[in-house]
Amino acid sequence: GGHPVTTQMVETVQNLAPNLHPEQIRYSLENTGSVEETVERYLRGDEFSFPP
């Protein structure tokens, strides 16, 4: 991942996926670069990993 992630982006995802840890959200956003894509992954039931 190398996309810039803002606190705003993390908070937006958190509102839609409250049971995800912020670190999981941030890591996913760094890989996708997209709030929409991260939320899609969540709704699909994809696994969210923590940063290594």
Rank of each mutant, 00 (worst) to 15 (best):
G1N: 12
G1L: 12
G1S: 13
G1F: 12
G1P: 13
G1W: 12
G2C: 15
G2V: 14
G2W: 13
H3I: 11
H3T: 10
H3D: 09
H3K: 11
H3V: 10
H3A: 09
P4H: 15
P4E: 14
P4W: 14
P4Q: 14
P4Y: 14
P4G: 11
P4A: 14
V5Q: 02
V5L: 06
V5T: 06
V5I: 12
V5R: 01
V5C: 05
T6F: 07
T6L: 06
T6E: 04
T6W: 07
T7Y: 10
T7D: 15
T7A: 15
T7N: 13
T7W: 12
T7S: 13
T7V: 13
T7F: 10
Q8H: 12
Q8P: 05
Q8N: 10
Q8F: 10
Q8D: 12
Q8M: 11
Q8K: 13
Q8G: 10
M9D: 09
M9H: 03
M9W: 07
M9A: 06
M9G: 02
M9N: 04
M9Q: 08
V10F: 08
V10N: 02
V10G: 01
E11V: 11
E11W: 08
E11Y: 07
E11P: 01
E11T: 11
E11F: 07
E11H: 11
E11N: 12
T12R: 15
T12V: 12
T12C: 13
T12S: 11
V13N: 00
V13K: 00
V13Q: 00
V13P: 00
V13R: 00
V13S: 00
V13Y: 00
V13D: 00
V13G: 00
Q14V: 07
Q14L: 12
Q14F: 07
Q14I: 09
Q14K: 13
Q14W: 07
Q14P: 01
Q14A: 12
Q14Y: 06
N15R: 15
N15H: 14
N15Q: 15
N15T: 12
N15P: 06
N15D: 09
N15E: 13
N15L: 15
L16R: 11
L16T: 07
L16G: 03
L16A: 09
L16I: 14
L16P: 00
L16H: 09
L16E: 05
L16V: 12
A17W: 05
A17R: 02
A17Y: 09
P18E: 05
P18K: 09
P18D: 04
P18L: 07
P18I: 09
P18A: 07
P18M: 06
N19R: 11
N19S: 12
N19K: 11
N19L: 13
N19T: 13
N19G: 14
N19A: 10
N19F: 10
L20F: 02
L20M: 05
L20T: 01
L20H: 00
H21F: 07
H21S: 13
H21K: 10
H21D: 10
H21A: 10
H21E: 07
H21R: 10
P22L: 09
P22V: 14
P22R: 10
P22M: 09
P22N: 05
P22A: 09
P22W: 11
P22G: 05
E23H: 09
E23N: 09
E23K: 08
E23G: 07
E23W: 09
E23T: 10
Q24L: 05
Q24V: 03
Q24A: 04
Q24E: 05
Q24M: 05
Q24R: 01
Q24I: 03
Q24S: 02
Q24P: 01
I25C: 05
I25S: 00
I25K: 02
I25E: 03
R26H: 07
R26I: 11
R26G: 01
R26V: 08
R26F: 08
R26N: 04
Y27N: 08
Y27S: 08
Y27F: 12
Y27T: 08
Y27V: 11
Y27Q: 09
Y27M: 11
S28K: 01
S28G: 02
S28T: 03
S28R: 00
S28F: 06
L29R: 00
L29V: 03
L29F: 00
L29W: 01
L29Y: 01
L29K: 01
L29D: 04
E30P: 00
E30T: 08
E30Y: 09
E30V: 08
E30N: 06
E30W: 10
N31R: 11
N31E: 15
N31F: 14
N31C: 14
N31Q: 15
N31K: 13
N31V: 14
N31S: 14
T32N: 06
T32S: 08
T32C: 07
T32G: 07
T32V: 03
T32E: 03
T32L: 05
T32D: 03
T32A: 06
G33A: 06
G33H: 08
G33C: 07
G33M: 07
G33Y: 06
G33D: 03
G33T: 03
S34K: 03
S34Q: 03
S34T: 06
S34C: 06
S34R: 03
S34Y: 01
V35A: 06
V35F: 04
V35C: 04
V35H: 01
E36Y: 11
E36H: 11
E36Q: 13
E36M: 13
E36I: 11
E36V: 11
E36K: 12
E36W: 13
E37N: 07
E37D: 10
E37Y: 06
E37H: 08
E37A: 11
T38M: 03
T38I: 05
T38K: 00
T38A: 02
T38Y: 01
T38G: 01
T38S: 05
T38P: 00
V39G: 01
V39C: 07
V39R: 03
V39L: 14
V39N: 04
E40G: 09
E40P: 01
E40T: 11
E40I: 13
R41W: 03
R41A: 13
R41I: 08
R41P: 01
R41H: 09
R41T: 04
R41V: 03
Y42T: 01
Y42W: 11
Y42L: 06
Y42N: 01
Y42F: 10
Y42M: 04
Y42A: 07
Y42V: 05
Y42K: 01
Y42H: 04
Y42E: 02
Y42D: 02
L43S: 05
L43D: 05
L43K: 10
L43C: 08
L43A: 07
R44P: 02
R44S: 08
R44N: 10
R44H: 07
R44C: 07
R44Y: 04
R44D: 05
G45H: 04
G45W: 00
G45D: 04
G45Y: 00
G45K: 02
D46F: 10
D46E: 15
D46W: 10
D46T: 05
D46C: 14
E47G: 08
E47V: 12
E47P: 11
E47K: 10
F48K: 01
F48Y: 01
F48I: 05
F48W: 01
F48R: 00
F48V: 03
F48A: 02
F48P: 02
S49N: 12
S49T: 12
S49P: 15
S49Y: 12
S49V: 15
F50K: 03
F50A: 03
F50G: 02
F50S: 04
F50E: 03
F50L: 06
F50Q: 03
P51F: 06
P51K: 04
P51A: 06
P51D: 05
P51M: 06
P52D: 09
P52K: 08
P52Q: 08
P52W: 06
